[in-house]
Design a protein around this nucleic acid. Structure first.
Length: 230
DNA sequence: CACCAGGGTGGTT
DNA sequence: AACCACCATGGT
């Protein structure tokens, strides 16, 4: 049976259960969290969120008015604190200037995505996370885990991000499904699956025990995972 | 101790 | 277009 993203989604959901993402009280908090969690585990990002809340800085004007150094100290636990402090200020300025969350909500998904990508520190993944979890738009979030998963079940192929996005969206296009999918892919990346029978598509880590079920081969001088079909 | 964690940017080949 | 160094903390 050919690999099927919906089938994978159902397996992941059955194994890990609903993830209830995004852990935030409001859309702006999602945006801030999306920046703080860049190349950082959620625990440390959450320390930054909590510190911002303690100082009542988790709002646009708060982030705009606070001193750069004070902001850096506040989010230090999240790592990359100098970079992220600047990014949060950029983000807060943008949201404030756009009429707040309600103002942003008026834009179409492509228009909003374009504006987010124009900001320093917001790349494709962060923009899509914001669109999906802060604005509930049906967007496919593509991260390294999903790319790795795709490679594992398909072997080496030329699928780029746009093609991967289209392939996923063809089978999962509801906001609730895409919300759950990304959360499950991330949750799965942290778990070396030992319980699920050979599913061939539940595990992402190269160290996963289940990886033994896939054939590791070499193509074009690179180690890749052969297709698992059959 | 090394390695990882829910990326993005700017510069170089 | 593909690589690279860099940003930097806290947990295992």
């Amino acid at each position: 049976m050919r690999f099927n993203i919906r089938n994978l989604f159902e397996r992941l959901l059955r194994h890990h259960g609903p993830q209830s993402w995004w852990p935030a009280d409001d859309p702006f908090e999602v945006m801030v969290g999306a920046v703080l969690v860049q190349r950082t585990n959620w625990h440390n990002a959450a320390l930054g969120i909590a510190a911002l809340k303690d100082r009542n800085l988790l709002r646009t004007t708060g982030l705009i008015e606070v001193g750069e150094t004070a902001l850096q100290a506040c989010i230090k636990a999240a790592g990359f604190y100098r970079t992220k402090a600047a990014r949060l200020k950029t983000l807060a300025q943008f949201v404030e200037g756009a009429g707040g969350i309600e103002g942003l909500r008026q834009h179409s998904t492509p228009a909003l995505r374009q504006q987010l990508l124009a900001l320093n520190g917001i790349g494709p993944e962060t923009a899509d996370v914001i669109l999906l979890y802060a604005f509930a738009r049906p967007v496919v979030v593509i991260d390294d885990y999903l790319r790795r998963l795709w490679r594992r079940v398909h072997g080496l192929d030329r699928t780029n991000d746009d093609e991967l996005r289209a392939a996923v969206f063809a089978q999962l296009c509801k906001t609730d499904e895409l919300n759950e999918l990304h959360a499950l892919v991330v949750a799965n990346s942290k778990t070396v699956c030992r319980k699920v029978p050979v599913c061939g598509c539940c595990c992402l880590r190269e160290t996963c025990q289940m990886a033994a079920q896939a054939r590791c081969i070499t193509r074009h001088g690179r180690k890749v995972w052969a297709s698992l079909e059959n």
